[in-house]
Structures are given as C-alpha cells and as structure tokens.
Simulated scan of single mutants.
Amino acid sequence: MNRNINTVKTDIAKSISVLWDPLTDKQRNFLLDNIEIRIFPKNEPIYKENERPEYIMCLLKGKVKVFIECNNHNQIVRIIGEKGFFGYRAAFADENYITGASAFEDSTVCMIPIKVIKKLISENTVLSLYFIKELSMMLGAADMRTISLTKKHVRARLAESLLFLKEKYGIEEDGSTLSINPSREDLANMSNMTTSNAIRTLSAFASECLIATDGRKIKIINETKLQNISEKG
C-alpha cells in the first residue's frame, strides 16, 4: 500500500516539472514526504479570504477560480490552469489571504506545506527564480487587468474574458467551442459587470454572429472581431 502511495506521489511530483526538475535527490525525497493530494468537488472552497495560508497549491486536474468578495458578488481575479500554482502570494508575504479560491469543476490539487516550499526555495536558486518570475508576471497581469476592468466598455470586457478563456483552456475538438463552460454569473464576475449585462452582451454577440451558445457552451465564431472589440475598449 505504502509503495503504491509513494509511486503515485512520485508520478504526480514528476508531472510538475518546474518544481521537480531543479531539485536534488535529497530535496525530491523531502518533497515527497510532505505533499498531500486532495480532490475538491465542483464549487467547493479551497481556501477563504482572511484565512492563514498553510499550503502552496498546484492544480493537477480541473479548473480553479480565484476571487474577491465585493458588493455581494465574487469578482473573479484569476483563473488557474493545470499545473498552475496558486495561493503563494499571501504565503510569501506572510499575510492572510485577501482572495478566496474554489473549484470551477471537480479538481485535484497538490498541497505543499509552506515551510516545505520555503526550505526548497532557500536551497535551490533555480526554484527561487521561478517563483520570482511567476510573481512578477502575476503583478503585470494584475496591472493590465485593472486597466481593462476600469477603462473598457462592457462589450470590450466580455470579449476580453471570452478570449482569455480560449487562451487559458483551449477549445474542443470542433475547433471553436471553449473547453470551459462558465455560468453567466462567472462570466459577469470575470468581466466586472452584472449578470444581466453579461446575458445581454452575450446575446448581442450571438446576434452579430461573433459567438454561438448552447446552454453554458460557448462557440467562438469570429475571433478577429472579438479581438477588435476587446482592443478598442
């Protein structure tokens, strides 16, 4: 049983190449002795605002949203892709979480205790530089997102969100349907608008043959025009 568990942990750790590859054999054994694998059902919280960080997390399978509770709704600030790390800004800053995170769909997450990742970073320059780069990219993306949400018209914000989802999660085998099926509320929360505005804007995009919808499924028909709408603001 223990051999099977260790084998699964090793396979999982190896799949997170940016974490596994730079480590020495001793560091890899230390990591394997401490990681946990958890499954979060759809909509289950992974962490909540104001909680004290205990882990740095890596999404192995599924989809996760990071959000801030604002004016009785959850403003989505980040979508985590597979093999993406999250929850580490607060950990490195030694602060409580200012965001919450929950599963968009059933999700498998690798949980790495903060003291473990900090020890590995202190010993491994390559790993420390990776997280510095990730934090820097996150800051840049947050700056650009702030500009988009405050300066752009609702059509531009929603077009940007649809294109972001396509870039982040890709499309299905038909070559145009988004691989993620967000609710209208989720799209609204990503785009800093009301759900009713999101519904109306999606309907307008559909009538203009920019997209097609089937329940929560969204098909991108004219990506070029959506890009133009997003850029013109």
Rank of each mutant, 00 (worst) to 15 (best):
M138H: 10
E134P: 07
L187P: 00
R200E: 08
L162R: 03
F205G: 01
K152M: 03
S196P: 01
A204M: 13
L158K: 08
T195H: 02
S136A: 14
H153M: 14
I132Y: 01
M138W: 06
E160P: 02
V154C: 03
R157A: 02
K168Q: 03
K133C: 08
A206W: 11
D143Y: 15
I199D: 13
V154H: 02
K168V: 01
E173D: 12
E167G: 05
N181G: 01
E172A: 10
S148Q: 15
E160I: 00
H153W: 15
V154L: 05
K151E: 14
H153F: 13
E172H: 07
T201Q: 09
M138S: 10
L149Q: 10
I180E: 00
P182E: 09
M193A: 04
S161L: 10
E160Y: 00
I171S: 05
I171Q: 11
K152Q: 11
M190E: 10
T146K: 15
K133N: 14
R145V: 06
G175I: 14
M144S: 05
A204V: 06
A188F: 11
S148L: 15
M137Q: 12
F131V: 11
A156P: 08
E167F: 11
A159P: 00
S183P: 07
N192K: 07
K168W: 00
A142H: 03
N181A: 06
L165Y: 09
N192Q: 09
I132F: 01
I180R: 00
R184F: 10
K168I: 04
S179I: 03
L178E: 07
S136T: 15
P182S: 06
M137T: 08
M137N: 14
T201F: 04
R184M: 08
A204T: 09
S161P: 10
T150C: 09
N192F: 03
A156M: 10
I180K: 00
K168C: 00
M193P: 05
S183D: 04
V154P: 01
K151W: 13
F131H: 14
K166N: 00
N181E: 14
E172P: 02
Y169E: 07
E167Q: 11
R200V: 07
L135C: 05
T146C: 10
I171R: 06
S176Y: 02
E185Q: 15
D143E: 13
M138F: 10
S203C: 03
S183C: 08
K152L: 14
T194W: 06
F131L: 13
G140R: 11
E185P: 05
S179C: 03
L165I: 08
I147R: 14
T195C: 04
T177W: 09
A159K: 00
E173R: 13
L163D: 06
A188R: 11
L162E: 12
M144Q: 08
E134R: 13
N192G: 02
L135N: 01
E167K: 15
G175D: 11
A142D: 02
N181Q: 11
K133I: 08
L165T: 06
M137E: 14
S203M: 05
L135H: 03
M138D: 10
A142S: 06
M144G: 10
E134H: 09
L178N: 05
N181F: 06
K166L: 02
D186W: 01
S207D: 05
E172Y: 04
Y169C: 04
A188K: 10
R184H: 13
R200K: 12
R200C: 04
S203H: 04
M137L: 14
S136E: 13
